[in-house]
Simulated assay, not measured.
Amino acid sequence: MVEFMEEFVKKTEVLSLNMLFKWDKEREYVERYSETTTGGLKNFFKSRAERGHSASNVVKIEEGGVVNKPAESRRVPSMKRRRAEAGGSGKEKVIDLTSNRCCGKEVSLEDVKLITKRQRRLHGYGGEEDLTSVWSEHFPISVVAEEHFQSKTDLDLIGSVDDLTRAQFMQVCAARLLCFGRYEELKAREEAERKKEESKEIQRSLEAERKLQVVNEQLALRDKEVEVLKSDVEQLKGKLQKLDKEKTELEARVIELCVEKKEAETSKENHGYAMLEIGFERARKQAEFFYLDLKFDNLDLIKVVHNGALVDDDEVDVEGGGDHDPQDGEA
């Protein structure tokens, strides 16, 4: 196939991919490369001819035949191979890339699987629902590129630089796109973390408001209880004032009763003295009645006969003597 293409390019300046199907028996093999444009193939073979290379590498063997050997390409070891070389079993959850100059760290397989899961729809092809979608498996990408993105001016601009410059340009664009993609990914993660933190903050705020509401309800209940207690205190104060008044009245009454008692005791004592006086006067009058010749003017109610003389009753009590028997002396 490569030899045919090389010979055909030497004969003509125009190469149509549809013409390839006339000479190729394996149609499916060619269709896999149908996205290759005519201009791209021409530039490819032209640049190879300028560098002095043929379309295929010819290697001689002992029998004198030739075989087509594809150009050796620099293959980058896969992650699985890197893990195997690092002594992993292929089932580890962490990819060790600490020796890699690009990454220089360990990468979790969960993160890799998550990226693959998220990107699967974008890197695949859809069905036949919408044939105008660039994700449709029937969308003619090469035809659109041929018609709209292969102008002579653009081709001349691209062809005016060498392969190395074009390769560097694609590397720069890819690196910058990678930088932008990683930035957007980290930005999305930060936004998700920020929203998550805001959600937690809102939850904490709602919880604080709920607690504050409970505290306010408890304070309102306490205020009601305080009002009730204040009312009870006012009532108790009224009762206390009433009791104080009653106490004052009772104390005054007690004093009055004490005075009355004292007066009653004094009156009782005076009544006894009065009765004694009346009895003494009766006895004196009766003695005068029986003894008309005797003088009873010297008789004294508050005196007693002591040692042959009339003395006060207090003096007898102090000296400790007793009353004089009337039969021992004169009356």
Results as ranks from 00 to 15, higher is better:
H53V: 15
Q327K: 14
S136N: 04
L114A: 14
D154T: 14
I61C: 12
K237R: 11
E7V: 10
H138D: 11
E197C: 03
I202Y: 03
R194C: 00
S73H: 12
T116H: 13
A309P: 03
N100F: 01
E256W: 00
E234A: 09
K152H: 06
F149C: 03
S34E: 13
A188K: 09
T116E: 15
D325E: 00
G104Y: 06
V107K: 01
L250I: 08
K195G: 06
M5D: 06
V311Q: 04
Q218I: 05
S16T: 13
A208E: 10
V143G: 07
V14D: 14
G321S: 10
I302W: 13
V161D: 04
Q327P: 03
R27H: 10
S136Q: 04
E217R: 13
L97N: 01
E137N: 12
R182M: 14
S160Q: 01
K22S: 08
D314V: 10
E26L: 01
L157M: 10
L257C: 02
T36H: 12
A208P: 01
G126A: 00
S160A: 04
T12N: 14
Y183E: 09
K211M: 08
E6M: 11
E315N: 02
A84Y: 10
E288A: 11
R284N: 06
D24M: 14
L292Q: 15
D328K: 05
D24K: 13
P326S: 07
L219I: 03
C258P: 04
A252Y: 04
Y29C: 11
A264K: 11
I115P: 07
K152Y: 01
S99E: 14
D317R: 15
P140Y: 02
A192T: 06
E106V: 08
R48N: 07
T36S: 13
N43S: 15
E191L: 11
V226Q: 10
L97I: 00
K42T: 12
E288Y: 07
K25E: 09
V215T: 10
V172T: 08
D156Y: 06
D223K: 14
T98W: 00
H123Q: 14
V172L: 09
V226L: 15
F4D: 12
A274P: 03
E251Q: 09
E288P: 02
D130Q: 02
I115C: 05
G329H: 09
E315H: 10
G159Q: 02
R194G: 01
G329T: 08
I158M: 05
Q218M: 04
E28W: 08
K25I: 04
S89R: 11
E184Q: 12
R48K: 14
N298T: 11
H306S: 15
A331F: 15
V143S: 12
Q241R: 03
G65P: 01
G238F: 02
L292C: 12
D323F: 13
E249S: 03
E260V: 04
